[in-house]
């Protein structure tokens, strides 16, 4: 009688489906990946000072941001595109003069950000860095100026 000797056990690890599994994992990663915004405008807050310098309104440039995005610079209406040129003339004599952004409570957040973004572009637009940009809160304005 002839004995059948075909029962050979393969010593290979089956890896034929490895690529399929790997590509499934890649597709999972690609589908679940979300692109997030990780950039923004920075502004430093003043450190606590026991004797803060008193700044009168006349010693600073005051930008009032109204609802809709219109602005008043020292109580005069101005287009946003003309803001930096206007400031260039003022800050040429005193570059450390504070530029204060005061936003109407009814205005949208984007209105304030647009003005701040314009001021931060001063170096490339007018070749001058505005050194002292301040965004006082309503509580600060009421406690310091009124």
């Amino acid at each position: 009688m002839k004995i059948n000797r075909d029962n050979k056990i393969s010593d290979e690890i089956p890896a034929s489906s490895m690529a399929d599994i790997a590509f499934l994992l890649i597709i999972y990663f690609m589908v679940t990946t979300t692109f997030t915004a990780t950039r923004g405008l920075d502004f430093g807050l003043p450190k606590e000072d026991d004797n803060p310098p008193e700044i009168e309104r006349e010693d600073s440039v005051h930008i009032q941001v109204n609802p809709g995005g219109s602005i008043l610079v020292d109580s005069k209406p101005m287009a946003l595109d003309n803001l930096l040129e206007h400031l260039k003339g003022i800050l040429k004599e005193n570059p450390t003069k504070p530029v204060i952004i005061q936003t109407d409570p009814q205005a949208a957040y984007v209105d304030m950000v647009t003005v701040l973004d314009e001021l931060r572009q001063s170096e490339e637009k007018i070749g001058m860095v505005i050194q002292n940009i301040s965004i006082p809160t309503r509580r600060e304005i009421e406690s310091f100026w009124f």
Binding site: V65, A108, Y109, V110, D111, R138, E140
Partner: peptide, 13 residues
């Protein structure tokens, strides 16, 4: 973008 600045003012404060 459309949040009223009043709320942002309080958060910054």
């Amino acid at each position: 973008s459309n949040v009223q600045y009043d709320h942002i003012d309080k958060v910054i404060d």
